[in-house]
């Protein structure tokens, strides 16, 4: 939908920023696996994030660590999108709930 090839002049990469200041630069295509991020960046809506390509997430707690894991997941998902029998991603148990919340928030 919002892949770089379809929208000329839109950067291929987007930046996710955690509440404690970590920045993760991701392929836009990978980031848009998340429903929230996709809508956030939808160029037709012209919200602030869609023009700057920077998404700050104030809501996610301990957001540096969690967002890193989210980013990892997004890439994991993107990389394996057309494959079958994919090995499970490793998730540290102490982050489980935080990640669940984040996933719920980001719709991914």
């Amino acid at each position: 939908m919002a892949s770089s090839s379809q929208n000329q002049g839109v950067s291929e990469y987007v930046t996710l920023i955690s509440s404690d200041g970590f920045e993760f630069v991701l392929l836009r295509e990978a980031a848009c696996v998340s429903g929230a991020i996709r809508r956030m960046l939808d160029p037709t809506s012209r919200f602030k994030e869609s023009t700057t390509g920077r998404c700050e997430f104030a809501e996610i707690k301990h957001s540096g660590i969690v967002l890193e894991k989210v980013a990892e997941y997004l890439y994991y998902n993107h990389k394996n999108r057309n494959r079958e029998d994919v090995p499970d991603m490793e998730i540290p148990p102490e982050l489980c709930l935080e990640l669940l919340m984040a996933a719920d928030y980001l719709d991914c």
């Binding site: 919200f47 602030k48 809501e59």
Partner: peptide
């Protein structure tokens, strides 16, 4: 006039 709005902020509010 949406370009000044932060989607994240609004989304968070409704959330």
């Amino acid at each position: 006039n949406a370009s000044k709005l932060s989607f994240e902020q609004l989304y968070r509010a409704s959330y």
